[in-house]
Nucleic acid binder design. Structure first.
Lengths: 233, 233
DNA sequence: CTCGACGACATCCTATAGGATATATCCTAT
DNA sequence: ATAGGATATATCCTATAGGATGTCGTCGAG
């Protein structure tokens, strides 16, 4: 499996399994509710059970998988509407503050590269409505943008909390159209500009508007989910 | 058939090891920076290495232990002053909101027992300045009180975030005197009363005052730390 | 006296085997 | 036909052994 042997820090098999499983859950390669067999995963990833076990233990604390003591692991189920509301409530508490602080940080240690990164991350990468790939790329780009704002806030704990929230967001199945992506990009750019121009209040408000918009776009999936819950394996 | 098999949920050895290690770290039974040998812990707790490994993996995600890929685990070092400030900054962001919501929650589903718990938890348990035990009991009681406020907020994510913060607070060595404990108890009681009487603004302000006080009391430890930093690598 | 290299030790990481338990299937009785 | 129970299978949980790696101490050269 492993070709690229240029590891800056010796990567253990448990780390590999962790990132692999996490990205698969994030990208919905593993359906919420799916059962995770330990030795099944071990054979599938061609490693032993112990690193799988370690990876699952980490994911359990993060809330991405659930465990029943002598029954096995399974991917955490889709967010209920209450949990969804709770999630966006929490985002509304954290992310506007992060945006404001990112815009109001000390100008002395302004990291210009990060600003460029921010502006680049705000853009949705080469979207084409037909490619099924692009939806995954979009959600990934969205995650990276919000994580970047979190890091720019200067508060490590705030950044970590936002990262954790983003991980949970992917437990909500959303159907994103091209119009939604355009709106998202516009809102992201507004936030990025406000941060780069160091306007804390503008950034905060832009983030708040973005979260409202995102909430509305995601909430639409709930209405449709009631009717489209049909074919489930 | 077996008679007394009343385990509410079968507790696995990994869970046991996890709670055991976590509580030891919290109670400073394991010094920050201390090396954690896997098979050393296995022999000490009289179990195999695998559950130890799982417990450490969870604690790593929580930030209570650190890992270097082929070198071993160690208890996360003491908070630097910057990290300490970051922690209280985050608490100031989360906990006043939690207090306000706990006070403003829906009166219909008011859980009276939780209110009584809250009032009881606000009290510091039978403090005697001489007993070395009581300091541990005090920090435990403080943790339980803040966690209770988090749960009463009605937001599961908010409660989880506060729990995680409290866990990190115990990575800061604080020397608490009897006067500090009295102040803490008074502030806790003020918060509890405001929540019980459903005065959100009062509760929020009381929590803010409490955090300011707590910050000042803990920050005193840093002044001494500069002189007593001694043999630390 | 300081710096660099070599070697032994301890520890982690991985793999495999055996015991214990939950779940599913099938059979029997009402 | 349905409900209850016993058996069989699959899976998890634990324990132990072997390979690989980092660390520490010692020795020798400059």
């Amino acid at each position: 499996m492993g070709e690229a042997l240029v590891w800056p820090e010796r990567q253990t098999l448990a780390d590999e399994a962790y990132t692999e499983l996490k990205s698969r859950i994030m990208q919905s390669g593993l359906e919420p509710g799916a059962k995770l067999s330990i030795d099944g995963l071990a054979k599938r990833l061609e490693i032993s059970q112990t690193p799988i076990r370690e990876a699952l233990a980490r994911l359990e604390i993060e809330g991405l998988v659930e465990r029943r003591p002598l029954s096995g692991y399974k991917v955490t189920s889709l967010l209920t509407e209450d949990e969804f509301e709770d999630l966006f409530d929490m985002r509304g508490l954290l992310e506007p503050v992060a945006a404001a602080r990112a815009a109001g940080r000390d100008p002395d240690r302004h990291e210009g590269d990060l600003e460029q990164n921010l502006r680049a991350l705000a853009r949705t990468p080469e979207f084409s409505a037909d490619a099924p790939l692009s939806r995954l790329e979009f959600t990934e780009a969205d995650k990276r943008f919000h994580n970047c704002v979190g890091r720019l806030s200067g508060s490590r704990m705030l950044a970590q909390a936002i990262d954790r929230l983003d991980a949970h967001l992917h437990l909500h199945r959303s159907h994103i159209g091209s119009k939604a992506i355009e709106e998202t990009e516009a809102e992201h750019l507004a936030i990025a500009e406000a941060i780069i121009e160091r306007k804390p209040l503008t950034a905060e408000e832009a983030m708040r508007r973005h979260l409202n918009g995102s909430h509305a776009r995601h909430a639409a999936a709930f209405g449709r989910a009631d009717a489209a819950v049909g074919p489930r394996e």
